[in-house]
Design a protein around this nucleic acid. Structure first.
Lengths: 343, 343
DNA sequence: CGAGGCGATGTGAACGCTAACATGGACGGG
DNA sequence: CCCGTCCATGTTAGCGTTCACATCGCCTCG
């Protein structure tokens, strides 16, 4: 109150008055300009410290016309993959000097996703990272891209859109090939729900590996990523004695499959082998330890931010190559036991 | 370019010109003031639509001195609980008209948490929700609270700080009491790491229930929330034949315990009963299905936002009662088998 | 029929910052 | 020794919005 300083947060003018310089000099110091003499800088810095000054981002954004924000839209925030992705995007963004707006959309309805995008646009994000590889988004992207930079996190993006991804197809081939190498010929697949790109890619990888190995596709059941759906799929698979291996499109479903198989009296891996996808942290401590395909979500998030910041800076469009997943061999898959080899 | 409208995003002035009114009238329409005639409003709305006008939040925040933002700091973003909490806070915030800044801190180091708080403050959040019930934060809170409204998400908050929480102690009592009722007398505990409030509360609940049931505490091992640490704890517990039940401080550790027990030839639940905490979605489909304590993270998030918005509005301090957890009985705990009853 | 009031709209300033340009003093070269 | 140059700093305007207040009809009431 006394010196014209109110109870409001201090502004550059307050700092300037205190340091005996103009507000512009304060601005220069805050922005790291080198056109300030050492002792002046020190005085300003001291004033900032004493006053607890904090630059007002709104004012800055208003005049620079840049928000310095990136938005990430993602689904299933309670799951390991999306959660890890969000955290790594956030961290990478901070490092790159951007604020990250995390926008989890709990259920995948078109309306809630559109609302979320509207909210991101209202926040004036400079780029939107779409961590939702669901086909319902493919149309949305084209339209969105006219407004703002867009980066899809996607293993099979539509042509011309910036993207990063992990090679889901290759991961599925890894898993299926492994099972084939173990001698299995009838390999079932518990797929992710229709509409999800990753689910489709994993299914196609399974099919492709089978084709390459001259094996016929085993039964195929569509789940919804949940362990419950895996359980139901497993119960169905257990009825088919010819199936000696199952490739599940994620670890949760794999764990449900294993439970159902057990309840039906089929041992894992002695009677039936099971392979999952994701390598969630608990996978190694399931019973049996789950053989699965690991995805590096942390690198994916960093890559996404890198592509986004480049796009903002110079409009670069080129997509980096897909990241390679890795097969993690544990105990839930074993060689086909001779007794079951009917040939 | 033609009408003074540039390639920049349209402003209120642009809308006003188009609708033939003043910028203030546009402002009134956008803010839902009722002091605008119906036909004027329609003209403005039409102009907004045609121009694709979007209100500039920075300018608004600058003049109102309110950011309309709430920040949530949380750890272990890849886990079910924190992920669910973040999503529900985000959703509840949107509903309440606030933007939510989700700030996951990947590893719990003081420096990274402080950086995250600085970032939140730089974003001018009107309240900080602290979803980190670790004791290293208790000091920080007092200091932070002088700057901004703070809501702790915490089952045992320091006096005088606004908070919401789920009753961890009660949950642990529920689990332990259940084991006691089943006839178990030697109940081990796999605790969460020292420093975590929830871990401490669950441990104390276990101790309290034991005391009430006139039972001696069984062996106690500290894990780090991971299934790996549960596995290691389980291996140790398996060596002690007197232990017939284990209460693990979360589901991941419970699952690790079960695996270790199995490897040591102890059946679950016939030889040893195991109860977890959290009720992660996969818990019901583990083998055996996990008996555990469910926490309602979604309600917790909503409550936190409610308390925060009230605090901002009228400075309310009173804390709502802790939410009650619920025991979910499945198959991983069973009555003490007679053969083991040494009495 | 005129004063008073009210409802609808407009005007000007201010929020805190950056960008562009202005100023002014020290220094060096012819 | 004077002028041009350059470095450090200051001055002014404007970003898009809201707030406080002004204005201007028109209706009501005595």
């Amino acid at each position: 109150m006394v010196h014209g300083e109110s109870k409001n947060a201090p502004s550059m003018a307050d700092v300037a008055a205190r340091a005996g310089v103009s507000h512009q000099t304060v601005s220069r110091v805050v922005n790291g300009s080198d056109a300030v003499r050492g002792d002046t800088r020190d005085r300003v810095l001291a004033a900032i410290e004493e006053l607890g000054y904090r630059r007002n981002k709104s004012a800055r954004a208003l005049v620079t016309r840049k928000s310095g924000r990136l938005g990430l839209l993602y689904t299933q925030p309670h799951l390991y993959g999306p959660g890890t992705l969000a955290a790594s995007v956030h961290q990478a963004g901070q490092r790159a000097g951007y604020d990250i707006i995390l926008s989890p959309v709990p259920h995948l309805e078109a309306t809630s996703a559109e609302r979320a995008i509207e909210a991101l646009l209202d926040d004036a994000v400079e780029a939107v990272l779409l961590g939702v590889s669901h086909q319902s988004f493919e149309d949305l992207v084209a339209q969105l891209a006219t407004t703002v930079e867009v980066v899809m996190i996607h293993s099979d993006p539509p042509a011309g859109v910036r993207s990063v991804g992990i090679d889901q197809h290759a991961g599925a081939v890894l898993a299926t090939q492994y099972l084939l190498d173990l001698g299995h010929r009838t390999i079932a697949h518990v797929a992710g729900p229709v509409g999800w790109i990753d689910a489709r890619q994993r299914r196609e990888g399974w099919l492709a590996a089978l084709r390459d190995g001259d094996a016929q596709p085993g039964p195929e059941i569509f789940g919804d990523w949940s362990s419950r759906s895996g359980y139901e799929a497993g119960a169905e698979i257990a009825r088919d004695a010819s199936v000696t291996a199952v490739f599940a499109a994620n670890d949760s479903m794999a764990l449900g499959v294993i439970r159902a198989l057990r309840e039906a009296g089929r041992r894992v891996p002695q009677d039936v082998s099971v392979v999952g996808f994701d390598d969630v942290p608990d996978a190694a401590y399931l019973w049996p330890p789950l053989t699965t395909v690991r995805q590096d979500f942390a690198s994916l998030g960093e890559l996404a931010v890198e592509v986004a910041t480049k796009a903002i800076a110079d409009g670069t469009v080129e997509a980096p190559p897909l990241l390679a997943p890795e097969l993690i061999v544990r105990d839930s898959a074993a060689p086909l036991s001779p007794s079951r080899d009917v040939r």
